[in-house]
Nucleic acid binder design. Sequence first.
DNA 1: GCTGTTTACTTAACAGTGTTAACCTTTGTT
DNA 2: AACAAAGGTTAACACTGTTAAGTAAACAGC
Lengths: 195, 195
Amino acid sequence: MALREEILEVSKDILIQDGFSKMSMRRIARRANVTATSIYLYFENKDDLLLALIEESINDLKSALQEVVVPGKDFIQQLEDMAKAYIRFALEHPKEYEIIYMVRPEEMPKYPREKFNEVRSAYELLAGIISRGKEQNLIEVDDPLISAYTIWAQIHGVVSVIINKRLDTRIQREKFTEQAVDHIIKGFIIQKTPA
Amino acid sequence: MALREEILEVSKDILIQDGFSKMSMRRIARRANVTATSIYLYFENKDDLLLALIEESINDLKSALQEVVVPGKDFIQQLEDMAKAYIRFALEHPKEYEIIYMVRPEEMPKYPREKFNEVRSAYELLAGIISRGKEQNLIEVDDPLISAYTIWAQIHGVVSVIINKRLDTRIQREKFTEQAVDHIIKGFIIQKTPA
DNA sequence: GCTGTTTACTTAACAGTGTTAACCTTTGTT
DNA sequence: AACAAAGGTTAACACTGTTAAGTAAACAGC
């Protein structure tokens, strides 16, 4: 049982230090002082091991978000803090963040249902905040869960562009993220269209 | 010289039909009726071949966007059409879209400068439209290029979540994209904050 | 105390991977 | 006719994920 945790830890280390392409079963095994086949005693295959890593990373992200949630806080401030916490986590732990959205669909046809429920609670953290904003008539939303996903997706896009090194070198990263958060939140606040 | 194009075509076919993990040098070669080593006569290595595929896909995306650009069109309508054209392209050609953002950073430390300039023109298509909106005082933006990247990143996030199959099964895809586009554009239009 | 079974691992092997060095042909040039 | 370049090839290296079969130690029942 201890080996399972050891494998997960070593895998994550390799992923962060040497990159995804170097994370082979044999390399993981070597660093855990076992043979590659031993990994199959605790994980079905490499994808299954990756799923476990995804799960861990999602929990870390979830914790980072939970930290900035303060019940009484101003709604817009709350949204902004959460968005920034998300971006901070992603940029401070890029590899860990990548794990979450890394696994290619063709290698994993369906994202397993039981894992989905784990992630869902993260979205529902955001959906809960949006619900409170709706109750206070600060925003007009149809379904808070859809809105949570929409915000989430937009923020993911922002960090994804940065992490994948697709941001124009002329553009300052901080200015970019600040503006993005500003626009994403603006898109949610009720505003009268100009006469 | 004809083989180079053949290799690109075959690679893309395999990628779309059989998935990224099946796109091996030997399989490409086999389907092009040559040996794997012949590929190295036209491409430095697999990453180089991938870069060429990325380039092609970006050009296809660029064309799809260019099609909806109509000089005299209403600014907001123009933005919306473009956003929807982007999403449509991505969801109708998911594999092709994936190619663009697929290559992992550690296997490609720097996105090559000369390729970057190619992509840039796509962003500048959007930046141009934003500039026109700024001139007409329809939006308040600092730097149109940053805004272009911001919008782009947000839309990318939306399609990325769908393509990576991370969208909650309870959420209807079309409702999600519609709302997302609405919010993204809202975030850009000048609006007076409620009194 | 001797069985039988389970647990936790290993060795050996299969079929595949990207990539390189060295080797052929065929074509074109001087 | 001699030389060189173009456009391929074969063979090999060091890896990859994964499986089938084997082994050694710990434990259970009688």
